[in-house]
Nucleic acid binder design. Structure first.
Length: 189
DNA sequence: CTTAGGATCGCCT
DNA sequence: GGCGATCCTAAGC
């Protein structure tokens, strides 16, 4: 039986803790999605984080209440989905980097224009395209439609390593993944 | 297999 | 003017 995540308590923790606990949890947007297999944590005292230099119109949601979606545009082209953590005003979040497709795979294929299941949601920009996430989702609660977060029934085996695509704080091991998953954006080593 | 370049938005110096 | 929490395609080895 699917068990919804208690977002009020779940996202009150620090971003690294939340990022690790998210591995294995199922996320659906309008009923389409799958199992989270890769995340990255970002925090206020973190040179790689959007919140590091303070609040701007773009990252304002990061400084809002936890348990909400922070969606931003990456490289002017792609959307990226984050979950706000900790507490109001802090500026912590978790980037969802990869999902194992589970529900609505044909719809994802159509949205992505790709047949290979492994390329549907393996990357932050890809999964937003597959789940049709845009700026319109920025600031929305994660415990209400169109979002649905479902707890995993078994404990996940989680690996950690340095984050991807950043130039600051490159050695901080705040990237988390489901051990052995075929749906990671890049393998862990 | 690896590398290089382009697309293009928001905020920075 | 520059630089990203990226992805795709094309070309080279």
């Amino acid at each position: 039986m699917p068990t919804p995540i208690a977002t009020d308590t779940f996202f009150a923790a620090d971003s690294a803790t939340v990022a690790r606990r998210l591995i294995g949890i199922t996320v659906l947007v309008d009923g389409i999605g799958g199992v989270i297999v890769e995340t990255e944590a970002y925090d206020r005292e973190d040179a790689a984080s959007h919140s590091f230099a303070g609040e701007t119109p773009r990252n304002a949601t990061m400084f809002g209440p936890p348990g909400h979606a922070y969606v931003y545009r990456s490289y002017g082209i792609h959307w990226c989905l984050n979950f706000v953590c900790r507490e109001v005003g802090h500026g912590a979040g978790v980037l969802v980097r990869a999902i194992e497709p589970l529900v609505g795979i044909q719809t994802m294929r159509k949205r992505r224009g790709v047949m290979d299941e492994r390329l549907l949601c393996s990357g932050p920009g890809r999964l937003c395209q597959a789940l049709a996430i845009t700026r319109s989702h920025d600031g929305l609660r994660l415990d209400d439609a169109p979002f649905e977060l479902i707890a995993s029934d078994a404990a996940a085996s989680v690996v950690a390593g340095p984050r991807i695509g950043i130039s600051k704080a490159v050695d901080v091991p705040w990237r988390f993944g489901l051990s052995g998953s075929r749906f990671l954006s890049k393998p862990f080593r």
